[in-house]
Amino acid sequence: MMGAYLAEHDHTGPAPRAAIALDGKALSGSAHRTQRHRHLLSAVTHAPTITPRPAGGGGKTNETTAFRPLFQPLDLASTVATFDALRSVKDQVRWLVKERKAHYIAMIKGNQPAALPQLKALPWEQIPIAHTLSESGHGRRESRSVKTTAIAAN
């Protein structure tokens, strides 16, 4: 969804920014009687689609600690990084922006108790939809929309 949005909307001028997504997945078939599924955290470019740097991990909790080592060797200047709520940690986002000179699109959920109320208080009804995707799968129809707005840095 975010990759499609980034591909269709260039908010930066004549050349679109490179985009890279960070996500973790449980490895199918890796669980045994006494061992839980192993997790893999990967950085994947949106176009062309490549995985420049996967990082293995044990349990899901290791995904957060693999964030910096995964991004460290990559040139992220002016790149847009996308990631889910698990990696939306203030210290990691600050590191991406200040030290790696990247931009980001992050999911914010209940794991960010200060940011979530601030985002909910924005005037979302007044912000136009920038991108919509509707699809069917898993016995249901889902529609997702993206709205973008600027907020003041603090």
Rank of each mutant, 00 (worst) to 15 (best):
H11Q: 09
H11V: 08
H11F: 11
H11Y: 11
T12I: 07
G13E: 03
G13F: 00
G13S: 06
A15H: 12
R17Y: 00
R17M: 02
R17N: 04
A18T: 12
A19N: 06
I20V: 10
I20G: 11
A21H: 05
D23M: 03
G24T: 04
K25V: 11
A26R: 11
A26G: 12
L27C: 14
L27D: 13
S28A: 12
G29W: 05
S30C: 05
H32D: 03
H32P: 00
H32G: 07
R33G: 15
R33Y: 15
T34S: 12
T34C: 12
T34K: 13
Q35K: 10
Q35D: 12
R36W: 15
R36C: 10
R38W: 15
H39R: 07
L41H: 09
S42G: 02
A43E: 01
V44I: 03
T45V: 01
T45N: 05
H46R: 07
H46Y: 08
A47T: 07
T49Q: 12
I50R: 13
I50N: 06
T51A: 06
R53H: 14
P54E: 10
A55F: 13
A55S: 11
G56E: 06
G58D: 10
G58K: 15
G58I: 08
G59I: 06
T61Q: 14
N62C: 15
N62W: 15
E63R: 00
E63S: 01
T65Y: 03
T65F: 02
A66T: 05
A66W: 01
F67V: 00
L70P: 02
L70Q: 03
P73Q: 01
L74M: 07
D75Y: 03
A77M: 02
A77H: 10
A77R: 11
T79E: 00
T79Y: 07
T79S: 04
V80T: 01
V80N: 01
T82I: 00
T82N: 01
F83P: 01
D84L: 00
A85T: 05
A85Y: 14
L86H: 08
L86G: 03
L86V: 03
R87P: 07
R87H: 14
V89P: 03
V89R: 00
D91H: 05
D91W: 01
D91G: 09
V93S: 01
R94D: 14
V97R: 11
K98A: 15
E99K: 08
E99R: 11
R100E: 09
K101H: 08
I105F: 15
I105M: 10
A106W: 04
A106F: 08
A106S: 11
K109V: 06
K109F: 10
G110Q: 08
P113T: 05
A114W: 08
A114G: 13
A114M: 14
A114H: 14
A114Y: 09
A115F: 13
A115Q: 14
Q118H: 10
L119C: 09
K120F: 02
L122I: 01
W124G: 04
E125W: 05
Q126K: 09
I127G: 03
P128M: 02
P128K: 09
P128F: 04
I129K: 09
I129C: 11
A130Q: 11
A130I: 04
H131G: 06
E135C: 13
E135I: 11
E135H: 15
S136D: 12
S136F: 12
G137Q: 11
H138L: 09
H138M: 10
